[in-house]
Structure formats: C-alpha cells, structure tokens
C-alpha cells in the first residue's frame, strides 16, 4: 500500500468529486425535480410496440451518450491521463459501462421503480421490446440496491473512480501504475466515508457492488451478442460507432 499523506488524500478526493460534478450529465436536483414525470400508459405502449431493433438502437444511443460523460470524468481524474494510452483505453472499455450503472442510481426513483430515460421516468416495462427482461430486471435491482446505500455525491464520485481504475482488467500494460492509482483512490474513498461518518460495513457492501457490476456488464455483452447474431446489419449501420468500439 502506498504511503499517502492526509493532504494528498484530501486533494485527490476533491479532484474526483469535482470531476464527477463537472461531468455528471444531469444534476441531482434536476433529476429529483423530474421524478414525478413518469411515462404515461400510452407512451409506455409506444415503447413496447417499437420493433426490437429500434429500441436497441435507442438504448445504444442513450448508453453511448452517458459513456461520453464518463470518458470526460476519467480524463479529469488526477493521474488517469498519465497512464499509457493502451491502459486508458483498456480501463474505459472495461469500466465505462460499469460507471454508467453506478451513476444510474442518481437517476433512479426507488418508490416507483423507475429510471430517467429519454426525457421521463421509465419502469422496466418500457424496455420490454428489447427482449432481454432478465438483464433489465438485474439493472433495476442493481440500481435499487445501490440506492439503498444512500451514497452522497462525493461517495458516488469516489466509488466510480475506484471502479474505473480497476487494476485487474485484462490487457493492462502498466498494471503497477494502475494499481497505485486504484489504491490511492480506495484510500481517498475510505477517507471520505470516514469523514461522512458512514458505518463500518459500507466498504464491504461497495465491494459486493463491484462484482455485481461485472456480472451486469457480462450480461449486457451476452445480450448484445445474441442481438447482433439476429440483426448484424442494424448493429453495423445504425449503432453509434463508439458503442461498437467499446462492445464490439
């Protein structure tokens, strides 16, 4: 474990929190104000009657938009741009969707089991046409369990950075550099949790979320492969190029 001064941890925590706020796509207050706006039944019917490929394309676009903000988040984390370019790409390929899932808890309404999507709050039924009910259920369950931790914005920021800087990703060239950065981020996260007087078990709960995130992303890949097998041309010509780069 690296020796890091309290001042350095404080500085890193501030840098990561600031980067998160600057790149979070929607402010929490904005999302809370919108939370009473759920899709009406006829709008839900509209989504459900979309052809499968059209709904997939829409979701791929939304995911890609969210990921672009995550790339910007990564770039602003102290030390990320000092990693070699191969490793920056490896970390983003493996971790950007995970961070989108973490960030999703900010846009999730636990009372109604809805998430902000395409301008309003949507329940799992809105995503029916995708034909991957299990994945959707898992994503909603994950958001719900993340929300139950009641993380503050700085805790979400630090946890997102910790997820993104995972040193165990395959194909890293300078694993040691990433490891150092992740360890520092973990210390900064612990520092913030202590400062916020969180209960002792919170870190181990967050560790469980790391494996849940990996399984969600693996499921996303499986579902994408199954979809691509049926609609190769749709993916090739209508999906966002960045989405294909990340998940192709």
């Amino acid at each position: 474990s690296p020796t890091v001064s309290m001042a350095e941890l404080e500085h890193l925590a501030q840098n990561i929190s600031k980067s998160h706020v600057e790149t979070c796509q929607y402010l929490r207050e904005e999302l809370q104000q919108l939370s009473w706006q759920a899709f009406l039944q006829d709008e839900v019917d509209g989504y459900q009657s979309k052809p499968r490929e059209v709904m997939w394309q829409l979701c791929a676009i939304k995911i890609t938009e969210a990921i672009q903000y995550v790339v910007e988040f990564a770039k602003r984390i102290d030390g990320f741009m000092e990693l070699c370019q191969n490793d920056q790409i490896v970390l983003l390929k493996a971790g950007s969707l995970e961070v989108v899932f973490v960030r999703m808890c900010r846009a999730f309404d636990t009372q109604n089991n809805t998430v902000y999507f395409d301008g309003k709050y949507a329940g799992p039924d809105v995503f029916k046409a995708l034909g991957c009910d299990d994945l959707i259920t898992s994503v909603f369950d994950f958001a719900k369990s993340m929300c139950s931790l009641h993380l503050s914005e700085d805790e979400i920021a630090l946890f997102s950075a910790f997820v993104l800087l995972s040193a165990d990703r395959t194909w890293l060239q300078e694993k040691l550099q990433v490891e150092k950065l992740q360890q520092k981020t973990q210390l900064a996260l612990q520092h913030v949790l202590q400062k916020n007087q969180r209960e002792d078990g919170i870190l181990s709960k967050l560790r469980c979320k790391v494996s849940a995130l990996r399984s969600l992303c693996a499921r996303h890949s499986e579902n994408l492969s199954a979809f691509r097998a049926v609609y190769p041309d749709i993916v090739r010509s209508h999906f966002p190029p960045l989405y294909k780069e990340l998940f192709g």
Partner: peptide, 16 residues
C-alpha cells in the same frame, strides 16, 4: 489504434 479511433479522439480532445 485504428480499432479504437473514437476513444483515442475523445481522450486526445482537450477537456472543455
């Protein structure tokens, strides 16, 4: 590099 053209571009763009 060609395989991750857009990611490369996004990473190289200066942060706004």
């Amino acid at each position: 590099k060609e395989k991750h053209k857009i990611l490369h571009q996004l990473l190289q763009n200066s942060t706004s």
